[in-house]
Nucleic acid binder design. Structure first.
Lengths: 287, 287
DNA sequence: ACCATCCATCGGTTTTTATGATTGAATATA
DNA sequence: TATATTCAATCATAAAAACCGATGGATGGT
């Protein structure tokens, strides 16, 4: 049973004529005859009584007509599947990005797409990438070097700069410029040990043949900022995460004699995945 | 979009495998691939993500799956159209048969098929036959000579005998035998003027070169029976219509020296009409 | 009685669908 | 790490079907 045939049947029933339906649907009249006959054969029941040169629905035909309407209605709804924005969206995100970037945007998304069942799973980068390869996540939002995995595609990337920070009362705060080796005489507060910031910081220290003194590890950048204001520690964080304390002067960005350390805040998903309208909408939210 | 394809899609989704679905449905695996692809093309949306060697429904695929279930469910219902007994049944019937035969049967039909919208239209034979030719009636129930119209078919026929009747107190009641010419000295009570009984009666009179004295015309055979018991009139009626008064002796059947006058109680419908289960059921009721 | 209209039928053509074998990639196994 | 197995996609080919145009029979109106 084909939807095209159902269409034909419906128009024939409505117009009470094979010929008129054929003209309207741009079929040969013989085609309409055949379609109806095939439908009748498939159902095992006559749909029209052919009495003289006019036709009329049989009892079965009348009932099947309503079925046909139902089906075409469903098919019509199904035609809009590509634009519908409801369903499940499973997002993996790094803890730092969840608190630093995503949380602020979520309310807007929830109000714009209330019918999306949003499932946000926090995790470390390696775990998230493994999950997306298993198609257990629809996309991941993380900070890292540009992706090189051929199975993944980057749907969004934004370069971010990592900056050295101290509190306004810190001795270094007033220095016009600070050397790298000088920096590493201080204690650092860092975010997660496996994150990009810590990795870059460790590399820079190693290049200076310095050893990072056992740093304090705190996931929340807000807490780090507070601690910096009060104390004598330094931090190495993405600029966007401390935009507010920098602008009000409570934190100071140190001018360091080293090429800027950059990395990417990015959205990745599996290369073979379909980018659903929901996913699309979420991407637009982020960008 | 074909129901076969929907079936395939459903099984693929349920089994999470093209190959398994192909085996189960007795298709080549390449056929399943093609069917799914064609479905995706028709909907303009991918239904499965092919990641590695395993597949999983996309968001659109999940939603379409429920649509597919709905459609196949409707199609399944439609498959039983040939056996369903609900809908409209339009019956044309002669007044005499309606009161004499049909009324007694209707309650049984109503309880057996409560979902049938039964439309009983009373009318004269010529009108009814015209209506059935226009497909304004599904069947007619009438008494007449055997049908000769090539457009109509007889679905049921029962030979009935017309008998001469008088009341128990009538002078002729005790006669062993009565001649035709003797009969026509009496007054007759008849049913409708265009009916079979009256026609036959008139013919018999003509053959005897007698003139029917202006007969009393009453449609109800019950009323005629009552009048016969009390009075001096005769009647010419189908035997079945007076079975009760004959058996209890209040009416007497006259033994007349003439070949028995027979005619047919019959059900006719248009030859090209589909005999629906409802109509079938009604026929079984009558027979 | 004639004409126009309607649906069924038929043969030929085109389009669609199904198949089997093969390929390439991913996963399990040794 | 190498090998075997499994899975879906692809391609060429064969089968099936859908479609069309012409024709014919029957009907209904003029």
């Amino acid at each position: 049973m084909e939807t095209r045939t159902l269409h034909t049947f419906i128009r024939v029933a409505e117009l009470q004529s094979f010929t008129k339906a054929a003209k309207e649907l741009d079929f040969a009249q013989s085609t309409v005859t055949m379609q109806i006959r095939q439908l009748e054969a498939e159902l095992g029941v006559p749909l029209f009584d052919r009495i003289g040169k006019r036709i009329s629905l049989t009892a079965a035909g009348r009932k099947f007509l309503s079925h046909a309407y139902e089906i075409t209605h469903i098919v019509q709804k199904a035609g809009a599947l590509g634009t519908q924005t409801d369903g499940v969206l499973r997002i993996g995100v790094l803890g730092s990005l969840l608190f630093g970037k995503l949380t602020a945007l979520l309310p807007r998304f929830r109000t714009a797409y209330p019918q999306v069942d949003l499932q946000i799973k926090m995790g470390r980068a390696a775990e998230l990438l493994e999950q997306i390869k298993q198609n257990e996540l629809d996309m991941v939002y993380l900070s890292a070097d540009l992706n090189t995995d051929p199975d993944l595609v980057c749907l969004y990337k934004q370069q971010e700069e990592l900056v050295f920070l101290c509190g306004a009362d810190h001795p270094l705060a007033t220095h016009r410029s600070v050397s790298l080796s000088e920096l590493f005489e201080n204690d650092f507060i860092v975010t997660e040990r496996s994150g990009v910031c810590f990795g870059r910081l460790r590399r820079l220290a190693a290049e200076q043949n310095k050893l990072l003194r056992d740093p304090l590890e705190i996931d929340s950048t807000a807490v780090i900022a507070t601690l910096l204001k009060a104390g004598k520690d330094l931090a190495f964080l993405p600029a966007y995460a401390v935009a507010q304390p920098l602008s009000d002067g409570s934190l100071v960005r140190l001018s360091v004699d080293t090429p800027p350390e950059t990395y990417y805040r990015q959205v990745l998903c599996h290369k073979d995945r379909w980018i659903s309208p929901i996913l699309q909408a979420f991407l637009e939210l982020i960008s």
